[in-house]
Design a protein around this nucleic acid. Structure first.
Lengths: 250, 250
DNA sequence: TACTTGGCTTCCGTTCAATGGAAGGACGAT
DNA sequence: ATCGTCCTTCCATTGAACGGAAGCCAAGTA
Protein backbone atom coordinates (compact mmCIF):
# COMPACT_ATOMS: atom_id res chain seq x y z
CA UNK A 1 0.00 0.00 0.00
CA UNK A 2 1.11 3.53 -0.61
CA UNK A 3 -1.03 6.54 0.11
CA UNK A 4 -1.59 9.39 -2.28
CA UNK A 5 1.10 12.01 -2.60
CA UNK A 6 -1.02 14.69 -1.10
CA UNK A 7 -1.96 12.71 1.93
CA UNK A 8 1.69 11.93 2.50
CA UNK A 9 2.53 15.58 2.58
CA UNK A 10 -0.34 16.11 4.99
CA UNK A 11 0.87 13.25 7.14
CA UNK A 12 4.15 15.07 7.46
CA UNK A 13 2.32 18.13 8.72
CA UNK A 14 0.31 15.93 11.02
CA UNK A 15 3.51 14.80 12.67
CA UNK A 16 3.57 18.14 14.45
CA UNK A 17 1.55 18.43 17.62
CA UNK A 18 1.69 20.52 20.77
CA UNK A 19 4.30 18.18 22.23
CA UNK A 20 6.37 18.23 19.05
CA UNK A 21 6.53 21.74 17.73
CA UNK A 22 9.95 21.23 16.20
CA UNK A 23 11.10 18.10 14.40
CA UNK A 24 14.21 17.10 12.50
CA UNK A 25 13.88 15.69 9.02
CA UNK A 26 14.56 12.18 10.25
CA UNK A 27 12.05 12.55 13.05
CA UNK A 28 9.46 13.67 10.52
CA UNK A 29 10.21 10.67 8.35
CA UNK A 30 10.04 8.33 11.31
CA UNK A 31 6.85 9.76 12.76
CA UNK A 32 5.02 9.65 9.48
CA UNK A 33 6.45 6.31 8.48
CA UNK A 34 8.07 7.06 5.18
CA UNK A 35 11.56 6.65 3.76
CA UNK A 36 13.97 9.44 4.50
CA UNK A 37 14.49 10.28 0.84
CA UNK A 38 10.77 10.68 0.30
CA UNK A 39 10.31 12.79 3.38
CA UNK A 40 13.23 14.90 2.28
CA UNK A 41 11.62 15.72 -1.02
CA UNK A 42 8.19 16.43 0.39
CA UNK A 43 9.51 18.50 3.25
CA UNK A 44 11.48 20.43 0.68
CA UNK A 45 8.30 21.31 -1.15
CA UNK A 46 6.45 22.23 1.99
CA UNK A 47 9.36 24.39 3.01
CA UNK A 48 9.57 26.11 -0.35
CA UNK A 49 5.91 26.96 -0.14
CA UNK A 50 6.15 28.30 3.38
CA UNK A 51 4.15 25.61 5.14
CA UNK A 52 7.26 24.71 7.09
CA UNK A 53 10.08 26.90 8.29
CA UNK A 54 13.54 25.87 9.23
CA UNK A 55 15.30 26.96 12.39
CA UNK A 56 19.00 27.72 12.51
CA UNK A 57 19.41 24.34 14.16
CA UNK A 58 18.08 22.69 11.02
CA UNK A 59 14.89 21.56 12.68
CA UNK A 60 11.58 22.18 11.02
CA UNK A 61 8.59 24.01 12.48
CA UNK A 62 5.18 25.01 11.16
CA UNK A 63 5.69 28.04 8.97
CA UNK A 64 4.15 31.44 9.02
CA UNK A 65 2.10 30.76 5.93
CA UNK A 66 0.19 28.02 7.69
CA UNK A 67 -0.32 30.36 10.60
CA UNK A 68 -1.89 32.86 8.21
CA UNK A 69 -4.10 30.17 6.75
CA UNK A 70 -5.10 28.88 10.13
CA UNK A 71 -6.40 32.29 11.08
CA UNK A 72 -8.80 32.10 8.15
CA UNK A 73 -10.47 29.01 9.56
CA UNK A 74 -13.99 29.78 10.63
CA UNK A 75 -13.40 28.26 14.03
CA UNK A 76 -16.23 30.15 15.52
CA UNK A 77 -14.74 33.31 14.06
CA UNK A 78 -17.95 35.18 14.63
CA UNK A 79 -18.19 33.92 18.15
CA UNK A 80 -14.62 34.84 19.02
CA UNK A 81 -15.03 38.28 17.60
CA UNK A 82 -18.29 38.91 19.35
CA UNK A 83 -16.95 37.61 22.62
CA UNK A 84 -13.59 39.31 22.61
CA UNK A 85 -14.54 42.57 24.32
CA UNK A 86 -16.57 40.76 26.93
CA UNK A 87 -13.66 38.52 27.77
CA UNK A 88 -11.59 41.59 28.48
CA UNK A 89 -14.30 43.03 30.65
CA UNK A 90 -14.50 39.81 32.58
CA UNK A 91 -10.80 39.72 33.06
CA UNK A 92 -10.84 43.29 34.20
CA UNK A 93 -13.59 42.61 36.70
CA UNK A 94 -12.21 39.37 38.11
CA UNK A 95 -8.50 39.18 37.24
CA UNK A 96 -9.10 35.46 36.78
CA UNK A 97 -8.19 33.36 33.78
CA UNK A 98 -11.07 33.62 31.31
CA UNK A 99 -12.01 30.85 28.89
CA UNK A 100 -14.26 30.63 25.88
CA UNK A 101 -14.87 27.07 24.75
CA UNK A 102 -17.07 25.02 22.44
CA UNK A 103 -17.82 21.35 22.26
CA UNK A 104 -15.77 19.38 19.74
CA UNK A 105 -17.17 15.89 19.62
CA UNK A 106 -16.84 14.57 23.14
CA UNK A 107 -14.20 17.05 24.22
CA UNK A 108 -13.95 20.70 25.09
CA UNK A 109 -12.13 22.87 22.57
CA UNK A 110 -10.75 26.11 23.96
CA UNK A 111 -11.14 28.78 21.32
CA UNK A 112 -10.05 31.76 23.34
CA UNK A 113 -8.30 32.32 26.56
CA UNK A 114 -7.15 35.26 28.52
CA UNK A 115 -4.78 34.88 31.42
CA UNK A 116 -3.39 37.47 33.73
CA UNK A 117 -0.06 38.00 35.37
CA UNK A 118 -0.82 35.93 38.35
CA UNK A 119 -2.35 32.79 37.08
CA UNK A 120 -3.57 29.65 38.65
CA UNK A 121 -2.05 26.43 37.29
CA UNK A 122 -4.15 26.04 34.16
CA UNK A 123 -3.74 23.30 31.61
CA UNK A 124 -5.76 24.83 28.82
CA UNK A 125 -4.33 26.58 25.82
CA UNK A 126 -6.10 28.03 22.84
CA UNK A 127 -6.63 25.10 20.50
CA UNK A 128 -6.26 22.48 23.18
CA UNK A 129 -8.88 19.88 23.95
CA UNK A 130 -9.74 18.68 27.42
CA UNK A 131 -12.23 16.17 28.80
CA UNK A 132 -15.73 17.49 29.38
CA UNK A 133 -16.36 15.93 32.77
CA UNK A 134 -13.45 17.59 34.53
CA UNK A 135 -13.80 21.20 33.47
CA UNK A 136 -16.34 23.90 34.20
CA UNK A 137 -16.94 24.81 30.59
CA UNK A 138 -17.06 21.11 29.79
CA UNK A 139 -19.86 20.45 32.28
CA UNK A 140 -21.87 23.32 30.85
CA UNK A 141 -21.46 22.11 27.29
CA UNK A 142 -22.22 18.56 28.36
CA UNK A 143 -25.36 19.61 30.17
CA UNK A 144 -26.77 20.98 26.93
CA UNK A 145 -25.24 18.43 24.54
CA UNK A 146 -27.27 15.86 22.59
CA UNK A 147 -28.12 12.74 24.53
CA UNK A 148 -25.78 10.58 22.42
CA UNK A 149 -22.78 12.69 23.31
CA UNK A 150 -23.67 12.67 26.98
CA UNK A 151 -23.98 8.90 26.94
CA UNK A 152 -20.59 8.47 25.36
CA UNK A 153 -18.86 10.83 27.76
CA UNK A 154 -20.49 9.20 30.77
CA UNK A 155 -19.11 5.89 29.55
CA UNK A 156 -15.52 7.00 30.00
CA UNK A 157 -15.05 9.19 33.03
CA UNK A 158 -11.28 9.06 33.34
CA UNK A 159 -9.75 10.12 36.60
CA UNK A 160 -7.51 13.17 36.28
CA UNK A 161 -7.01 14.25 39.88
CA UNK A 162 -8.18 12.83 43.16
CA UNK A 163 -11.26 15.04 42.91
CA UNK A 164 -12.33 14.15 39.38
CA UNK A 165 -15.89 12.88 39.21
CA UNK A 166 -15.84 9.36 37.88
CA UNK A 167 -19.28 8.11 38.88
CA UNK A 168 -21.85 8.61 36.10
CA UNK A 169 -24.66 9.07 38.59
CA UNK A 170 -22.92 11.91 40.38
CA UNK A 171 -22.09 13.67 37.14
CA UNK A 172 -25.66 13.29 35.89
CA UNK A 173 -26.93 14.85 39.08
CA UNK A 174 -24.53 17.76 38.59
CA UNK A 175 -25.62 18.24 35.01
CA UNK A 176 -29.21 18.43 36.16
CA UNK A 177 -28.24 21.19 38.56
CA UNK A 178 -26.32 22.99 35.84
CA UNK A 179 -29.47 23.15 33.74
CA UNK A 180 -31.51 24.26 36.74
CA UNK A 181 -29.15 26.88 38.10
CA UNK A 182 -27.53 28.05 34.87
CA UNK A 183 -23.91 27.55 35.87
CA UNK A 184 -21.38 24.81 36.56
CA UNK A 185 -18.44 24.63 38.95
CA UNK A 186 -15.43 22.42 39.46
CA UNK A 187 -13.11 22.07 42.40
CA UNK A 188 -9.64 20.81 41.54
CA UNK A 189 -11.14 18.17 39.27
CA UNK A 190 -8.79 18.91 36.39
CA UNK A 191 -5.74 20.24 38.17
CA UNK A 192 -5.00 20.73 41.83
CA UNK A 193 -5.25 24.28 43.07
CA UNK A 194 -7.67 25.31 40.33
CA UNK A 195 -11.41 25.77 40.65
CA UNK A 196 -13.72 27.02 37.96
CA UNK A 197 -17.14 28.45 37.24
CA UNK A 198 -18.79 28.47 33.85
CA UNK A 199 -22.03 29.52 32.19
CA UNK A 200 -23.59 28.80 28.81
CA UNK A 201 -23.51 31.27 25.93
CA UNK A 202 -26.63 31.17 23.82
CA UNK A 203 -27.03 31.86 20.12
CA UNK A 204 -29.72 33.69 18.25
CA UNK A 205 -32.41 31.11 18.88
CA UNK A 206 -31.48 30.28 22.44
CA UNK A 207 -29.35 27.23 21.66
CA UNK A 208 -26.14 26.83 23.63
CA UNK A 209 -23.26 27.60 21.30
CA UNK A 210 -20.38 27.95 23.72
CA UNK A 211 -19.39 28.17 27.34
CA UNK A 212 -17.72 30.98 29.18
CA UNK A 213 -15.64 30.14 32.21
CA UNK A 214 -13.35 31.49 34.89
CA UNK A 215 -10.56 29.70 36.67
CA UNK A 216 -9.66 30.81 40.18
CA UNK A 217 -7.64 29.38 43.06
CA UNK A 218 -10.61 29.27 45.38
CA UNK A 219 -14.31 29.42 44.79
CA UNK A 220 -15.87 29.58 48.22
CA UNK A 221 -15.78 33.29 48.79
CA UNK A 222 -16.69 34.79 45.52
CA UNK A 223 -18.91 32.35 43.76
CA UNK A 224 -21.96 34.56 43.61
CA UNK A 225 -20.09 37.55 42.26
CA UNK A 226 -18.28 35.49 39.63
CA UNK A 227 -21.44 33.79 38.44
CA UNK A 228 -23.19 37.08 38.09
CA UNK A 229 -20.27 38.63 36.18
CA UNK A 230 -20.22 35.61 33.90
CA UNK A 231 -23.92 35.79 33.24
CA UNK A 232 -23.81 39.44 32.37
CA UNK A 233 -21.04 38.80 29.88
CA UNK A 234 -22.69 35.74 28.41
CA UNK A 235 -25.87 37.71 27.85
CA UNK A 236 -23.85 40.47 26.22
CA UNK A 237 -22.27 38.00 23.85
CA UNK A 238 -25.64 36.49 23.03
CA UNK A 239 -27.01 39.90 22.23
CA UNK A 240 -24.16 40.61 19.83
CA UNK A 241 -24.54 37.18 18.24
CA UNK A 242 -28.21 37.80 17.69
CA UNK A 243 -27.65 41.28 16.30
CA UNK A 244 -24.05 41.93 15.26
CA UNK A 245 -24.72 45.57 14.55
CA UNK A 246 -25.42 46.20 18.21
CA UNK A 247 -21.76 45.57 18.95
CA UNK A 248 -20.94 49.17 18.13
CA UNK A 249 -22.96 51.08 20.65
CA UNK A 250 -22.11 48.80 23.51
CA UNK B 1 4.73 22.33 -17.38
CA UNK B 2 2.94 20.76 -14.48
CA UNK B 3 3.94 21.32 -10.91
CA UNK B 4 4.39 18.60 -8.33
CA UNK B 5 1.33 17.11 -6.77
CA UNK B 6 2.13 18.49 -3.38
CA UNK B 7 2.60 22.00 -4.57
CA UNK B 8 -0.71 21.78 -6.39
CA UNK B 9 -2.46 20.87 -3.20
CA UNK B 10 -0.73 23.77 -1.52
CA UNK B 11 -1.75 26.09 -4.32
CA UNK B 12 -5.32 25.16 -3.59
CA UNK B 13 -4.86 26.17 0.01
CA UNK B 14 -3.14 29.33 -1.13
CA UNK B 15 -6.29 30.29 -2.99
CA UNK B 16 -7.77 31.25 0.35
CA UNK B 17 -7.00 34.70 1.65
CA UNK B 18 -8.67 37.19 3.97
CA UNK B 19 -10.89 38.37 1.13
CA UNK B 20 -11.79 34.83 0.12
CA UNK B 21 -12.45 32.82 3.21
CA UNK B 22 -14.96 30.59 1.48
CA UNK B 23 -14.63 29.24 -2.05
CA UNK B 24 -16.59 26.87 -4.23
CA UNK B 25 -14.85 23.98 -5.89
CA UNK B 26 -14.88 25.71 -9.25
CA UNK B 27 -13.57 28.93 -7.76
CA UNK B 28 -10.74 26.96 -6.20
CA UNK B 29 -9.91 25.36 -9.51
CA UNK B 30 -10.07 28.69 -11.30
CA UNK B 31 -8.00 30.58 -8.76
CA UNK B 32 -5.27 27.99 -8.70
CA UNK B 33 -5.37 27.37 -12.42
CA UNK B 34 -6.02 23.68 -12.65
CA UNK B 35 -8.66 21.52 -14.31
CA UNK B 36 -11.81 21.03 -12.36
CA UNK B 37 -11.43 17.27 -12.19
CA UNK B 38 -7.97 17.60 -10.69
CA UNK B 39 -9.06 20.19 -8.18
CA UNK B 40 -11.96 17.98 -7.27
CA UNK B 41 -9.70 15.10 -6.39
CA UNK B 42 -7.17 17.15 -4.48
CA UNK B 43 -9.81 19.07 -2.59
CA UNK B 44 -11.33 15.73 -1.70
CA UNK B 45 -8.10 14.62 -0.10
CA UNK B 46 -7.62 17.87 1.74
CA UNK B 47 -11.16 17.63 2.98
CA UNK B 48 -10.78 14.06 4.13
CA UNK B 49 -7.70 15.01 6.08
CA UNK B 50 -9.37 17.99 7.70
CA UNK B 51 -7.39 20.73 6.03
CA UNK B 52 -10.58 21.94 4.44
CA UNK B 53 -14.12 21.88 5.76
CA UNK B 54 -17.30 22.10 3.83
CA UNK B 55 -20.18 24.37 4.71
CA UNK B 56 -23.79 23.37 4.25
CA UNK B 57 -23.79 25.54 1.17
CA UNK B 58 -21.17 23.27 -0.39
CA UNK B 59 -18.47 25.90 -0.22
CA UNK B 60 -15.09 25.07 1.21
CA UNK B 61 -13.29 26.83 4.04
CA UNK B 62 -10.04 26.27 5.86
CA UNK B 63 -10.60 23.42 8.28
CA UNK B 64 -10.13 23.13 11.96
CA UNK B 65 -7.09 20.92 11.60
CA UNK B 66 -5.17 23.66 9.84
CA UNK B 67 -6.25 26.03 12.57
CA UNK B 68 -4.73 23.66 15.10
CA UNK B 69 -1.54 23.43 13.10
CA UNK B 70 -1.33 27.14 12.61
CA UNK B 71 -1.37 27.67 16.35
CA UNK B 72 1.80 25.59 16.56
CA UNK B 73 3.71 28.00 14.35
CA UNK B 74 6.36 29.80 16.33
CA UNK B 75 5.14 33.17 15.14
CA UNK B 76 6.69 35.00 18.00
CA UNK B 77 5.03 32.52 20.32
CA UNK B 78 7.27 33.57 23.17
CA UNK B 79 6.61 37.20 22.51
CA UNK B 80 2.85 36.79 22.34
CA UNK B 81 2.78 34.82 25.53
CA UNK B 82 4.98 37.24 27.38
CA UNK B 83 3.00 40.20 26.15
CA UNK B 84 -0.49 38.86 26.68
CA UNK B 85 -1.08 39.99 30.25
CA UNK B 86 0.36 43.40 29.54
CA UNK B 87 -1.95 43.87 26.61
CA UNK B 88 -4.88 43.26 28.90
CA UNK B 89 -3.56 45.71 31.41
CA UNK B 90 -3.16 48.30 28.71
CA UNK B 91 -6.64 47.75 27.50
CA UNK B 92 -7.94 48.02 31.01
CA UNK B 93 -6.10 51.26 31.57
CA UNK B 94 -6.97 52.93 28.29
CA UNK B 95 -9.99 51.13 26.78
CA UNK B 96 -8.32 51.69 23.43
CA UNK B 97 -7.54 49.12 20.77
CA UNK B 98 -4.18 47.56 21.63
CA UNK B 99 -1.77 46.19 19.04
CA UNK B 100 1.34 44.07 19.18
CA UNK B 101 3.23 44.00 15.90
CA UNK B 102 6.54 42.93 14.40
CA UNK B 103 8.26 43.79 11.18
CA UNK B 104 7.79 41.32 8.36
CA UNK B 105 10.04 42.40 5.52
CA UNK B 106 8.90 45.89 4.65
CA UNK B 107 5.49 45.58 6.25
CA UNK B 108 3.98 45.49 9.70
CA UNK B 109 2.61 42.15 10.80
CA UNK B 110 0.04 42.33 13.58
CA UNK B 111 0.55 39.37 15.85
CA UNK B 112 -1.91 40.27 18.55
CA UNK B 113 -4.73 42.66 18.91
CA UNK B 114 -7.22 43.51 21.54
CA UNK B 115 -10.23 45.64 20.78
CA UNK B 116 -12.93 46.92 23.05
CA UNK B 117 -16.64 47.42 22.74
CA UNK B 118 -16.41 50.86 21.32
CA UNK B 119 -13.79 50.72 18.68
CA UNK B 120 -12.36 53.24 16.36
CA UNK B 121 -12.40 52.26 12.70
CA UNK B 122 -9.36 50.01 12.64
CA UNK B 123 -8.14 48.13 9.64
CA UNK B 124 -5.78 45.76 11.38
CA UNK B 125 -6.52 42.15 12.19
CA UNK B 126 -4.31 39.53 13.72
CA UNK B 127 -2.26 38.17 10.86
CA UNK B 128 -2.80 41.17 8.62
CA UNK B 129 0.01 43.19 7.13
CA UNK B 130 -0.06 46.93 6.74
CA UNK B 131 2.39 49.50 5.37
CA UNK B 132 5.00 50.73 7.81
CA UNK B 133 4.84 54.43 7.00
CA UNK B 134 1.18 54.88 7.83
CA UNK B 135 0.89 53.17 11.20
CA UNK B 136 2.22 53.96 14.64
CA UNK B 137 3.73 50.55 15.23
CA UNK B 138 5.10 50.69 11.69
CA UNK B 139 6.95 53.93 12.30
CA UNK B 140 8.48 52.54 15.46
CA UNK B 141 9.63 49.37 13.74
CA UNK B 142 10.92 51.37 10.80
CA UNK B 143 12.86 53.71 13.04
CA UNK B 144 14.85 50.78 14.37
CA UNK B 145 14.97 48.70 11.17
CA UNK B 146 18.14 48.04 9.18
CA UNK B 147 19.11 50.79 6.77
CA UNK B 148 18.29 48.66 3.72
CA UNK B 149 14.70 48.16 4.83
CA UNK B 150 14.26 51.84 5.57
CA UNK B 151 15.58 52.72 2.13
CA UNK B 152 13.16 50.40 0.43
CA UNK B 153 10.16 51.62 2.39
CA UNK B 154 11.05 55.25 1.76
CA UNK B 155 11.11 54.47 -1.93
CA UNK B 156 7.42 53.63 -2.01
CA UNK B 157 5.39 55.83 0.28
CA UNK B 158 1.92 55.09 -1.02
CA UNK B 159 -0.85 57.45 -0.10
CA UNK B 160 -3.59 55.84 1.96
CA UNK B 161 -5.55 58.82 3.27
CA UNK B 162 -5.21 62.53 2.75
CA UNK B 163 -2.96 62.65 5.81
CA UNK B 164 -0.55 59.88 4.87
CA UNK B 165 3.06 61.00 4.81
CA UNK B 166 4.42 60.53 1.32
CA UNK B 167 7.53 62.74 1.41
CA UNK B 168 10.65 60.77 2.36
CA UNK B 169 12.22 63.76 4.03
CA UNK B 170 9.27 64.29 6.35
CA UNK B 171 9.16 60.65 7.31
CA UNK B 172 12.89 60.56 7.97
CA UNK B 173 12.54 63.54 10.25
CA UNK B 174 9.76 61.76 12.12
CA UNK B 175 11.82 58.61 12.47
CA UNK B 176 14.63 60.65 13.97
CA UNK B 177 12.19 61.99 16.53
CA UNK B 178 10.88 58.51 17.25
CA UNK B 179 14.39 57.39 18.15
CA UNK B 180 14.93 60.51 20.23
CA UNK B 181 11.62 60.52 22.09
CA UNK B 182 10.95 56.79 22.26
CA UNK B 183 7.49 56.80 20.74
CA UNK B 184 5.69 57.36 17.44
CA UNK B 185 2.30 58.80 16.62
CA UNK B 186 0.01 58.94 13.63
CA UNK B 187 -2.99 61.10 12.92
CA UNK B 188 -5.49 59.62 10.49
CA UNK B 189 -2.67 58.52 8.20
CA UNK B 190 -4.01 55.00 7.78
CA UNK B 191 -7.72 55.52 8.25
CA UNK B 192 -9.75 58.60 8.95
CA UNK B 193 -10.89 59.02 12.51
CA UNK B 194 -8.07 56.92 13.92
CA UNK B 195 -4.92 58.16 15.59
CA UNK B 196 -2.26 56.01 17.19
CA UNK B 197 0.67 55.98 19.55
CA UNK B 198 3.31 53.27 19.67
CA UNK B 199 6.51 52.40 21.50
CA UNK B 200 9.25 49.84 20.89
CA UNK B 201 9.48 46.57 22.81
CA UNK B 202 13.05 45.50 23.45
CA UNK B 203 14.49 42.03 23.75
CA UNK B 204 17.07 40.62 26.10
CA UNK B 205 19.99 42.55 24.63
CA UNK B 206 18.16 45.80 24.01
CA UNK B 207 17.30 45.17 20.37
CA UNK B 208 13.84 46.19 19.21
CA UNK B 209 11.81 43.03 18.68
CA UNK B 210 8.30 44.39 18.37
CA UNK B 211 6.13 47.45 18.75
CA UNK B 212 3.25 48.04 21.08
CA UNK B 213 0.57 50.47 20.01
CA UNK B 214 -2.76 52.03 20.86
CA UNK B 215 -5.42 53.32 18.50
CA UNK B 216 -7.70 56.09 19.69
CA UNK B 217 -10.12 58.53 18.07
CA UNK B 218 -8.18 61.56 19.22
CA UNK B 219 -4.70 62.03 20.50
CA UNK B 220 -4.47 65.60 21.60
CA UNK B 221 -5.78 65.29 25.11
CA UNK B 222 -4.23 62.13 26.41
CA UNK B 223 -0.97 61.67 24.64
CA UNK B 224 1.24 61.88 27.68
CA UNK B 225 -0.81 59.41 29.67
CA UNK B 226 -0.99 56.92 26.82
CA UNK B 227 2.72 57.08 26.11
CA UNK B 228 3.52 56.50 29.71
CA UNK B 229 1.13 53.55 29.96
CA UNK B 230 2.66 52.08 26.81
CA UNK B 231 6.18 52.48 28.10
CA UNK B 232 5.41 50.81 31.38
CA UNK B 233 3.90 47.86 29.55
CA UNK B 234 6.72 47.64 27.03
CA UNK B 235 9.23 47.56 29.85
CA UNK B 236 7.24 44.86 31.55
CA UNK B 237 7.26 42.76 28.42
CA UNK B 238 11.00 43.28 28.00
CA UNK B 239 11.58 42.15 31.54
CA UNK B 240 9.63 38.95 30.94
CA UNK B 241 11.42 38.36 27.65
CA UNK B 242 14.78 38.71 29.35
CA UNK B 243 13.80 36.48 32.24
CA UNK B 244 10.74 34.35 31.53
CA UNK B 245 10.61 33.03 35.06
CA UNK B 246 9.82 36.49 36.36
CA UNK B 247 6.45 36.28 34.64
CA UNK B 248 5.02 34.46 37.63
CA UNK B 249 5.48 36.94 40.42
CA UNK B 250 4.42 39.88 38.35
C1' DT C 1 44.33 9.90 12.87
C1' DA C 2 41.07 6.51 11.91
C1' DC C 3 36.62 4.76 12.69
C1' DT C 4 31.68 5.07 13.93
C1' DT C 5 27.23 7.07 14.28
C1' DG C 6 23.49 9.96 12.90
C1' DG C 7 21.58 13.20 10.18
C1' DC C 8 21.20 15.41 5.63
C1' DT C 9 21.33 15.61 0.48
C1' DT C 10 21.53 14.04 -4.37
C1' DC C 11 20.99 10.79 -8.07
C1' DC C 12 18.35 8.11 -11.27
C1' DG C 13 15.85 3.88 -13.43
C1' DT C 14 11.43 1.85 -12.52
C1' DT C 15 6.71 1.90 -11.98
C1' DC C 16 2.41 3.16 -10.48
C1' DA C 17 -0.48 6.79 -9.20
C1' DA C 18 -1.87 11.45 -10.80
C1' DT C 19 -3.83 13.42 -14.72
C1' DG C 20 -7.66 15.72 -17.16
C1' DG C 21 -10.91 15.28 -21.15
C1' DA C 22 -15.33 13.70 -21.52
C1' DA C 23 -19.80 12.49 -20.12
C1' DG C 24 -23.50 12.71 -16.96
C1' DG C 25 -26.27 14.59 -13.11
C1' DA C 26 -28.35 18.18 -10.14
C1' DC C 27 -30.10 22.60 -9.56
C1' DG C 28 -31.88 27.11 -10.71
C1' DA C 29 -32.79 30.84 -13.76
C1' DT C 30 -34.84 32.57 -18.04
C1' DA D 1 -37.81 23.57 -22.52
C1' DT D 2 -33.23 25.28 -22.73
C1' DC D 3 -29.39 27.28 -21.03
C1' DG D 4 -25.73 28.15 -17.54
C1' DT D 5 -23.18 26.72 -13.50
C1' DC D 6 -21.55 23.71 -10.53
C1' DC D 7 -20.40 19.08 -8.91
C1' DT D 8 -19.10 14.18 -9.56
C1' DT D 9 -17.35 9.91 -11.72
C1' DC D 10 -14.77 7.25 -15.14
C1' DC D 11 -10.59 5.51 -17.20
C1' DA D 12 -6.61 5.12 -20.63
C1' DT D 13 -2.34 7.46 -20.86
C1' DT D 14 2.02 9.04 -19.25
C1' DG D 15 5.17 11.57 -16.70
C1' DA D 16 6.06 12.47 -12.00
C1' DA D 17 6.75 10.33 -7.46
C1' DC D 18 9.30 6.74 -5.47
C1' DG D 19 13.02 5.08 -2.61
C1' DG D 20 17.38 2.27 -2.56
C1' DA D 21 21.95 3.46 -2.76
C1' DA D 22 25.86 6.21 -2.32
C1' DG D 23 28.14 10.22 -0.65
C1' DC D 24 28.59 14.29 2.51
C1' DC D 25 29.34 16.53 6.87
C1' DA D 26 29.82 17.02 11.87
C1' DA D 27 30.25 15.16 16.36
C1' DG D 28 31.63 11.68 19.24
C1' DT D 29 34.95 7.80 20.47
C1' DA D 30 39.07 5.04 20.65
Amino acid sequence: MSASVTSRALDLLGAFDPEHRTLTLSALARRSGMPLATAHRLVGELHRWGALARLESGEYVIGRRLWDLGLLAPVQAGLRQAASPFLHDLYGATLATVHLAVRDGTEVLYIDRLAGHVSVPVVSKIGSRLPMHATGVGKVLLAYAPEAVRAEVLGRLNRVTAYTITQPARLLEQLRRVRAEGFATTGEEMSLGACSVAVPVRGAVGEVVAALGLVVPDLRRERARLVSALQVSAQGISRVLADPSSAQWK
